[in-house]
Design a protein around this nucleic acid. Structure first.
Lengths: 86, 86
DNA sequence: TAACTATATAGCACAAATGCTATAACATCT
DNA sequence: AGATGTTATAGCATTTGTGCTATATAGTTA
């Protein structure tokens, strides 16, 4: 059975750090971002602590709310290899 | 009740088009991409037809498999407003 | 200290992403 | 026409994302 899991901790951590940096550059609180993006505050916190593998729609909403171009929001390097979890 | 839905059709369509373009630039089939990224072929097809709201982990796996930097994979403009679905 | 703000965490319910398998549709050839 | 390769679609089971609410833990300021 054992389905394949795809949670990429290392990559999600890079994204979390980048998002937090971009948000702080703009002096926006998690709560304000949640409001602007029409997302739950808990979800913003989960993303910034890399505890959830969020979706593109959510990322797009955040990018619009922060008025940050996608290439800038994704301006970080992925760790080479995903760590195996099996 | 009616939970909020966040499926961003317009944004996902832009990503679908961009991914397809990047993949074709590299002369890689969906099947080959699926194999390299360790994803299901059906999932690649769903993403390229914008029928799924995929996650960051999946996007990261694809970026690694195609050896495309994230800013390049996300080098497209989001439609200004998400279309309301209610 | 206390009050206030910001962030993190937890649990539940519902919706959806993904793997898997099979099949269909479509394209490009000989 | 047929054969072959590529892409799209479908259904099911399992896992997980997200909203929602509440609470806890910093951090800051009076």
């Amino acid at each position: 059975m054992a389905r394949k899991l795809i949670f990429d901790s290392a990559g999600l951590l890079r994204f979390a750090e980048r998002l937090k940096a971009v948000r702080k550059e703009r002096n926006v609180t998690q709560e304000e971002l949640a409001f602007r993006a029409d997302l739950a505050l808990s979800q913003i916190a989960r993303i910034e602590t890399a505890r959830t593998n969020t979706t593109l729609s959510t990322v797009f909403a955040i990018a619009r709310a922060l008025e940050v171009p996608l290439p800038e929001l994704f301006n970080f390097n992925l760790p080479e290899e995903r760590e195996k979890l099996d």
